[in-house]
């Protein structure tokens, strides 16, 4: 019961922190934020590690393999694609390729 209580407390507080932090992210960044949080639930790979340490039957080994494969796809893929997206947001403003000497045409 004590463990459950402290785990529940952690869960609820983390939910509140999540609401607080995510609520302030501008809609411009919602896609990378989503794929970034998507990568964070890849922490389930740590659960796969725990399962591996407990597995002692063929079913257990198979489930370990499945959990490991799926979790790894999630965590590796999630971080890589988020980084790819954010790289496009953080690159320096490209220099204006056309010079502005032709302003007399504009108006």
């Amino acid at each position: 019961m004590e463990t459950l209580y402290s785990n529940l407390a952690i869960f609820v507080l983390a939910l509140l922190v999540g609401v607080e932090v995510i609520g302030k992210i501008p809609s411009t960044l919602h896609t990378p934020m989503m794929s970034g949080s998507n990568a964070i639930h890849g922490v389930v790979i740590a659960g796969a590690v725990v399962t591996a340490s407990l597995a002692d039957s063929p079913t257990g080994y198979i489930l370990t393999f499945i959990a490991g494969a799926f979790a790894a796809a999630n965590v590796f893929g999630g971080y890589v694609v988020t980084d790819r997206i954010l790289k496009m947001f953080t690159r320096p403003t490209p220099p204006k390729t056309v010079d502005t000497t032709t302003t007399e045409d504009a108006s």
């Binding site: 785990n7 952690i10 869960f11 983390a14 939910l15 999540g18 609401v19 934020m33 949080s37």
Partner: peptide
């Protein structure tokens, strides 16, 4: 009984719900 999973899961749960 793994706190890393609980915290990360809750953070993502909150993120997804708000969005």
């Amino acid at each position: 009984d793994n706190q890393a999973l609980i915290i990360a899961g809750a953070l993502v749960g909150a993120a997804g719900t708000i969005l």
